[in-house]
Amino acid sequence: MLDRYTGVLLFAGLGCFGLAFVLSAVYPWMITDGTRPEASIEAVATPVTTEFKQLKESYPVAFAQAFPRADECLTDQELVDVAADDPRRTASDGAWGAAHAVALRAGRDEYVGQVCWHCHSQFVRPVANEAVRFGRVRSAADDNNELQRPVLWGTRRVGPDLTNEGGRRSNDWHVAHFWDPEGTSPDSVMPRYTWFFRDGFQVVRGIDPELAARQGLSSEREYAYPGVFETQAEAEAELARIRESADPNLKAETARLRVVPAKGPDGDGLAIIAYLQWLGTWDASEREETNQ
């Protein structure tokens, strides 16, 4: 009997699909994200995280290559001698925001392109002690921004949730972890992300042999200066600059400066770290209150 109305029923098939679409997609949109405009990446990029500023201090060369207006971005150290009404301060704030927005977009693209979201969720639920372990429960307002389009909640946790990852660990930890996860988390099954790194040259200062002997440390021990340069000549120039600007009383120290081959995060590596350090730092609820 039903067969006599095949056409009607075919239409009903579309109707069921449409009904489900309205109930499961349009209706939630109406009462969550549809109630206020989606925040742009530029909006969520401010305030700039401390860790992002530290990335410039630790990896100035890669930073300058990866992000726009890097030379205008002044770190707290560089701002010490700048007067409060100096226009460089406002320019610096704007430059940081712009660089951070570029880093967040690139970092999100890496997060999608490397498929991080298949093993890490961004979805803390109000059950299973997840708030105790991972921090604040995810709200609809947290996700109403351009970085969550497409949404990256994930459905599987081989690794921990990253909702509130920002500021939990240092940049150095992330760099070491991307280079070799088992180094920071023994027995981790995460792959090494060696392609987030590039080869270069770095200035290091060897340890004082006497001090090393006294403390029982290896005399091979050395301390790195920020910046992994592409060529040896650039690193040598940096060495000369450090030696020149050093206090004359530290001659013995500067004599132990040398250039060695080194690895450091490249632009993609910095971007993904900037993204991870941003996660959870942008509090949508605060923004709500200040707007009202």
Binding site: S24, W29, D143, N145
Partner: peptide, 18 residues
């Protein structure tokens, strides 16, 4: 199309689930 270009966050997730 929708979770990629129009619907962010939770409504995007609902559509992705769909």
């Amino acid at each position: 199309t929708l979770p990629e270009w129009t619907l962010p966050g939770s409504s995007g997730a609902a559509t992705a689930g769909l």
